[in-house]
Design a protein around this nucleic acid. Sequence first.
RNA 1: GUGGGUGUAGCUCAGUGGAUAGAGCGCCAGACUGUGGCUCUGGACGCCGGGGGUUCAAAUCCCCUCACCCACCCCA
Length: 424
Amino acid sequence: MSEQIKSVRGMRDILPEEIEVWQSVEAIIFKTLESFGFEEIRLPIVEDLRLFQRSVGSYTDIVQKEMYVFQDKAGRHLALRPEATASVVRAYLEHQIYLKKKITRLYYSGPMFRYDRPQKDRYRQFYQIGAEIFGGSSPYFDVEMIIILSKIFNLIGISEYLFEINSVGCNICKIKYETKLKEFLELNKDQMCQDCKLRMQHNVLRVLDCKLDTCRKIIRNAPTIESFLCNDCIKHQEAVYTVLDKLHINYEKNQYLVRGLDYYTKIVFELKIKNEENSVAGGGRYDNLVKELGGPVTPAVGFAIGMDRLCSILNGDLCIKNKILIVFLDKQSIEAGMPIIDNSRISGIRISADYSERSLKSHLKNADRENINNVLILGENELEKKCFLYKNMRDGSQKYIKFDELSNFFKELKNVKDSHMRTD
RNA sequence: GUGGGUGUAGCUCAGUGGAUAGAGCGCCAGACUGUGGCUCUGGACGCCGGGGGUUCAAAUCCCCUCACCCACCCCA
């Protein structure tokens, strides 16, 4: 026997029983984004390696050790995208969208790739849905992003979530703070962990995020970004917090929240769900990135939702779509029934038939197991009466449905929603 | 990338050198001839993750490898 080929490490199949959740969640997210005026953009998965080096940052872990890099046959250095903001910006510039619109709202969806060590809810191919606003420097664009996220999570039915928010400052105060922080840390260098010593070289802010007690002690006495923010950045963050308070959005300031991508300025945020270790969404403002990638000065904000994590949290909480199973008891029933069903079939409800010659008992057992609430039975008795026998598996009730009323019956069932999720 | 754990039936797991590898759940069939969930009876199901080694003998011990899980790192 030949060896079984399996999916490669960190890559997985998302099977039908899981996809139901994915589709519901995707529908909610897309509809919400559309309702805020966002338009979809579809991007390539493969990009020029330099795009990520310049945007995400050469010294970030993402670029240094987590990127899938390869050369094509012409020797081009390419990468599988580790995130999509860089691609959106690239497309925004390549097509000179900034000339056509003052404010541009875009969203994307698809797989991202990071060569990480796989863990629960962390895959090497993972899925993000993200949104970006270009051309708006007002803090209220940041707030809009947070509103959208909270709207999405409310619609999904998750109520216990929290935004962690911080300001990492603009180009000016961020750099000022970084040098001050570095100076401070230099004094305590010998007590700090090996990782932090490296972080000091390339990305000082990351030190703030260290989990080790010894480092945390030092960090507690370190200067905070807040005291270094310039007037503009202070005004910006205050405006954000003021509106969030009025909106009663659940958030917490976190001085130590630092994101792993270098391009963020001013407001950064992450969304955490109660009792969940990982954050399921994150984002922030990036006012310099468009310019750094060769475009005009263009302020921007964005976020990305981690679909794998979100759907895995929801998975135990399945919404069951209304399904119908049609069961035939003999050959005559199949021959008579198939054309009737064929004519009555409507879209938007799952009608599947089982033509196996099995006992009714075994068919019903099967329906029960597969969580199918509605069964239509066709056998000798029904053929005589020119109707199907409908059985509701929930309460066990039964009634006859005439052949010419089948289509209307399907429509009726379609309107019965069996779900806590609102997709419209 | 670092450290630890696990891998045996569809699922959860027992089995620490000895015969034909077990249990619970699930599955199939019957009791109940056309009615699921409860009960009882019977039945099917295993490259013991893969490769190599030690041994008269390996699921069990050793080495390698792959995958998953946990922590770190990082992130979504």
